[in-house]
Design a protein around this nucleic acid. Structure first.
Lengths: 119, 119
DNA sequence: TTAACATTTGAACGATTGCTCAAGTGTTGA
DNA sequence: TCAACACTTGAGCAATCGTTCAAATGTTAA
């Protein structure tokens, strides 16, 4: 009764006050999920390659397939994911679909992450 | 014979020259993988919450469990992953392990990604 | 010593992922 | 109109992921 716990399971929160203060400042559930989704979509070598290629040039699905050595279908699936998360956009020209980056933040993310992996 | 293809499968690379130029500028396999690994580790709501909490304060495993409503074990598994990727570090004080961020780039990544999700 | 505790670890599980394959859509040029 | 083409889509499958549970490690205090 006296003890301040997080009820769910009997975790003995060492510093309940600190925990409460931090919890209050954390963004809400939906923001955290959106953030994780954005990172997750970049968390795959194929998609990183696609994004980095599009940082250099506008490319069609076929180009990206050739570039990565993967099937056109595989690339198309990945592009849909990148499209849904608003990381890439495309323009149609006849049968072709030319893809490019949709957001300047993506290049920043890649840039900063590169710095991290290079220690 | 005359046609320049990317041999692997018979992909009709629309602009072989452009593809070759881009391919040459892309970082090598290992760098791409390391980059993807970094994003992937941030691509989960639980780990995003852990990282954002550690941006605000140094916390022990127990605190993080209380904060997220997950088991201590689950948090410990996730912290190991974050540790392996050098995103967090910890100091021992008796039985406790106090975790904090290991790299200023992480906060930048969170920052930029927040800007992206807020359009 | 021992018991209690904070944390870590390994096995196991259902859920999700990234690919392939086959079939589909829509555009072009013969 | 029709075949060829660029791309998209859905089903299916092996591999990976995130959690739980049980057991282990290591520290503290009695």
């Amino acid at each position: 009764m006296a003890e301040l716990k997080t009820d769910v399971c009997s975790v003995t929160a060492v510093d309940a006050e600190k925990v409460a203060a931090v919890q209050q400042k954390l963004p809400q559930e939906s923001a955290v999920r959106a953030l994780a989704e954005t990172f997750k979509v970049l968390g795959d070598p194929t998609r990183v390659r696609i994004v980095m290629a599009l940082m250099l040039d506008e490319l069609c699905v076929c180009d990206l397939a050739a570039l990565t050595g993967l099937s056109v279908s595989a690339i198309s699936h990945q592009l849909r994911m990148l499209r849904n998360l608003k990381l890439v956009k495309y323009r149609r020209k006849g049968k072709m679909a030319y893809y490019s980056l949709d957001d300047e933040h993506i290049e920043q993310l890649i840039q900063v992450a590169m710095e991290h992996v290079h220690e």
